[in-house]
Nucleic acid binder design. Structure first.
Length: 449
RNA sequence: GCGGGGAUGGCCCAGCCCGGUAAGGCGCUGGAUUGCUAAUCCAGUCCUCGAAAGAGGUCGGGGGUUCAAAUCCCCCUCCCCGCGCCA
């Protein structure tokens, strides 16, 4: 939510921001908000005058009674005040609710460095890393490949839980866990505290993080309970310090959430839709930071470095784009996407998103920084995917696929997989005792050619 | 699931039976005093409206009774303890 002060003092800033985002549909919302705010303040003043009168008379009645005198006249004088107050209260409450609803729907102010643009196509690439190799042989689709290697079972996943769910088996199951564990260790080295959050949240906690409209569309609800499965660990991490005051000396708080995420809305476009790329359930390591306002832009770059460092460690080529004004999410002031190279799709595709939400989330969550009794200021919040395992595994299955249908495990992950260096090697017909060394070498040579 | 106890300002806690200005402590901030520190004393410490003076609100949430509700009545939520069930 935006600062009410901006609405009152500089509404043109909000209007320009909406125009920059190409969100002109919400301009009437802004006008209404300005009007409701003015009417609300007038109403509050009228209401306070009435309440003041009531309080004065009530005090007089109290004094008369305690002095043992007759208060009948005063009581009659006060008799019709409650109805008037009630009526005005109702009106003021309505105005306030309308105002808040409108405010919640106005997007965050974009940072000045966000390029103007309408759609995804206008996002600007800021850098690339690694060689986006074109395969020398026809890559198998990752789903087909994984099924063939016996490390994923989509059919049984569908049968048991529906489309969008899968059984990961053997080395792919281990790869998922290896990514999580490597990801967590990677961030712990950089000062993050690992957090295993609740995988469900109450509605009231959830409303601090997302809009009401999101519930129906993307979130799973536990039947008969006021609980929703988390769509990203950003949500429980953000809600963690709701209504709290964080010690300013202990900021920034760097949290590293490792959790399973559940999303109803997964769409169905692009190649290999039947696969791991879009799932109803996947695992993720998330960076989440609460910091002081003046340091959030530095932290934003820090989080970006972390994600890029992670993909470099895996040796997966990527590029970074800055989202244009029209493509930047409502709560973010600025967002970088990290797009990994997917050779089969012959494209860079989003695998992570890094947003500085400035004070927009914090205002709604009411998370402040300060000293108890001292001055308090809203914190800034930032979140950045370190790794969403499902998508990252697709990138691994595509980038490190060999001609023989096995897949190299990135070196840094091998210690987390009991030394397994290649997925599928064990599933293939056992080579003769003397053969393995030569066989591997020849495979490699062929691939290089 | 059953029984019991709770929710009051940043924290602790009184007030509730019996309606009439939410007391006190801790912490923190500022000031006074002071070789330093400590102690002591004074003021402040939540939200809203207001340029200010000031006013209003706030006792888990929502209704109700009343001139007046932390207090009485009704409904709901959450937390804690015990029992039950349980990895």
């Amino acid at each position: 939510m935006l600062d009410m002060k901006i609405l009152r003092e500089r509404p043109e800033v909000i209007r320009e921001n909406l125009e920059r985002r190409g969100d002109i549909d919400r301009l009437p919302l802004l006008e209404n908000a300005v009007r409701w705010d003015r009417e609300w303040r007038e109403g509050v003043q009228d209401l306070d005058r009435l309440r003041h009168r009531r309080n004065v008379i009530t005090g007089e009645i109290r004094d008369l009674k305690s002095a043992g005198q007759d208060a009948g006249a005063k009581i009659r004088e006060a008799a019709d005040l409650p109805a008037q107050i009630k009526a005005l209260e109702t009106r003021v409450d309505e105005l306030q609710r309308s105002l808040r609803d409108a405010m919640l729907r106005l997007p965050n102010l974009l940072h000045e460095s966000v390029p103007k643009g309408a759609t995804e196509a206008d996002n600007i690439e800021v850098r690339r890393w690694g060689r986006a190799a074109v395969p020398r042989f026809e890559l198998k689709g990752h789903g087909e490949l994984a099924e063939g290697l016996g490390v994923a079972d989509f059919e049984r996943g569908r049968r048991a839980a529906g489309a969008g769910f899968v059984y990961l088996l053997g080395d792919l199951a281990r790869l998922d866990m290896a990514l999580l564990r490597f990801g967590v260790d990677f961030l712990v080295k950089r000062g993050f505290t690992p957090v295993l959050p609740p995988f469900v949240l109450r509605r009231s906690a959830y409303e601090g993080m997302v809009d009401l409209t999101a519930f129906r569309d993307v979130m799973y609800k536990v039947e008969g309970e006021d609980l929703y499965l988390i769509a990203t660990s950003e949500h429980p991490l953000g809600a963690m310090y709701m209504d709290e005051i964080l010690d300013v000396d202990r900021l920034p708080v760097r949290l590293c959430g490792a959790a399973t995420q559940f999303r109803k809305e997964i769409g169905a476009h692009g190649v290999d839709t039947k696969g791991l790329f879009r799932m109803h359930q996947f695992d993720k390591v998330e960076q989440f930071v609460f910091c002081r306002p003046e340091e959030s832009w530095a932290v934003h770059e820090e989080l970006q470095k972390n994600s890029e460092g992670f993909y470099r460690a895996l040796r997966i080529p990527y590029r970074v784009v800055i989202l244009c004004s029209g493509d930047t999410g409502k709560v973010a002031a600025k967002t970088y996407d990290l797009e990994a190279w997917f050779p089969r799709q012959n494209a860079y595709r989003e695998v992570g998103s890094n947003s500085n939400c400035t004070d927009y989330q914090a205002r709604r969550l009411n998370i402040r920084a300060g000293k108890i009794g001292g001055e308090k200021v809203l914190v800034h919040t930032l979140n950045n995917t370190l790794v969403a395992t499902s998508r990252c595994m697709v990138a691994i299955l595509e980038n490190f696929q060999r001609r023989d249908g096995t897949v190299d495990v990135p070196r840094v992950l091998r210690p987390y997989m009991g030394g397994v260096s290649r997925i599928g090697a064990a599933a293939r017909p056992k080579p003769k005792r003397k053969a393995p060394a030569r066989r591997r070498a020849s495979t490699r040579t062929r691939q290089r050619r």
